[in-house]
Design a protein around this nucleic acid. Structure first.
Lengths: 249, 249
DNA sequence: CGTATCCTTGATGCCTCTCAAGACGGGTGG
DNA sequence: CCACCCGTCTTGAGAGGCATCAAGGATACG
């Protein structure tokens, strides 16, 4: 039915996860802002980060609902999903996180986690204990400001998702989803048009508030319309402009 | 068709808005936490708040998208809705705010507002300029902590709404909505079972991701099932347990 | 007392979910 | 190296929940 040429796996996705080849992570971004304020403290923070590297295998939990909040996490390499649950066990994926992004900050000022995070593939994370973060934010106003900034960004991202869930149809949802990843990969100097997604169709559907099957159908239709080429989790975007038009901001 | 007995308007809603009878507001809560740390500074903050009281008439904007962030707002009396917009003008209501609640904190660390807020009725707000807030948070660690706490709470609330929008059906949505207001009114020492809603069916539908007509139909069905009595914006909840069962957390 | 706004109800259609079955691919063990 | 198996992806058929369109009724406000 559809031409299935093998595509060269260029970038992203984290199929190979080497601590050496890994890009920079969010915490470093957080530190960089601080440079010039207190270089010594800065170095100590970096040291802590490096010491707290941990490797997670596909499907393992970073944290779960009800657990006391101990740390925030920076993904050095790999990816994760975070989600919330209903009483009767239904799940809503609230976000995907790729190399270089932070998670776990939303629960910063709560006693216990209200959401869970699970890695989607073999993933290397920096675990920054809350005490460490608090100590540094005490000393350095810029770290405080950066933390507020990150929280604000999370709220803005959530607002976008609410808009999507409440007001967009299936086509708009998937287009929005793909463009979001395109943007994020570009930001990390990966290709914005050729990447592979580390999550299943089921996870995508859950995140976008639609059935797994509907996700497949829209993917197929987008491909028939020449918007993209897809083979399993590999995606090549062919017409960003038209996707933007479809996504409707 | 349905019995329309007039109900006594007991509480909430803010039909009457007198600065004297108004309950306490979120900022005071924020200050109270600080007592013992710096009573002098605390008083100055209160003074600022009182000086910055403002009255808004139904439909007026507290802030709009793209506007520079200048202040956060505490509702002393009345109510407001906040919402985000798509490129093509579609709106998603992201929250309702009643007497004693804060808004505008989500955009704290952004340059410009990404959402808008509009009052639903004649509403008295305390406008706290960002400089003031920053100055105090600089001096007082507890204020900083309270601000983080409030941001975290906003993220948690948003997660709940995402769960609702992504995974719940019409009945579950309305039940969840009503219980949320019940809880919030109770927290402010108003009746948790008899209150009036200050927003239109259209706003409720927008917030819950369903059509205005569907909201009406579910209200009617809930009334037929003996779950509540409703006449326009006046609501009396008759069976909280069953509503909780329907809402499914 | 007229008009605008909001609320309510009915009829109809469609978008998406659900159920079902088959295809594909990666991994494992013989 | 091949066969097998299981999870994931894909496609089809059918049903249903909710949106949309339409119109009448109630209420608030000037």
């Amino acid at each position: 039915m559809m031409p299935k040429r093998p595509m060269a796996a260029q970038n992203a996705g984290g199929e190979t996860c080497s601590p050496i080849t890994c890009g920079d992570c969010g915490i470093y971004g957080l530190c960089r802002e601080v440079n010039g304020t207190g270089a010594a403290a800065d170095l100590r923070l970096l040291e802590t980060i490096v010491r707290n590297r941990k490797l997670f295998k596909r499907g393992e939990l970073l944290y779960r609902v009800g657990e006391p909040v101990r740390a925030i996490y920076a993904i050095r390499c790999g990816s994760a999903k975070s989600y919330v649950l209903t009483n009767d066990g239904r799940m809503q994926v609230t976000g995907f996180h790729v190399t270089g992004e932070l998670l776990g900050l939303g629960a910063l000022a709560t006693d216990h986690y209200t959401s869970e995070a699970r890695v989607l593939e073999t993933t290397m994370v920096c675990e920054v204990p809350l005490e460490v973060l608090e100590a540094y934010s005490e000393e350095m106003p810029n770290v405080r400001y950066q933390m507020l900034k990150i929280l604000s960004q999370e709220i803005i991202d959530n607002q976008d998702l609410m808009l999507l869930l409440g007001k967009k149809n299936a086509d708009e949802r998937l287009a929005t989803f793909l463009l979001s990843f395109s943007r994020r990969f570009q930001k990390r100097s990966y290709s914005p048009t050729l990447f592979n997604l580390s999550m299943s169709r089921s996870d995508i559907g859950n995140y976008l508030g639609m059935a797994e099957e509907t996700v497949c159908r829209v993917f197929t239709r987008f491909q028939d319309d020449g918007l993209l080429i897809t083979a399993r989790r590999q995606v090549q975007l062919l017409d960003l402009d038209r996707l933007r038009l479809i996504s409707r901001g």
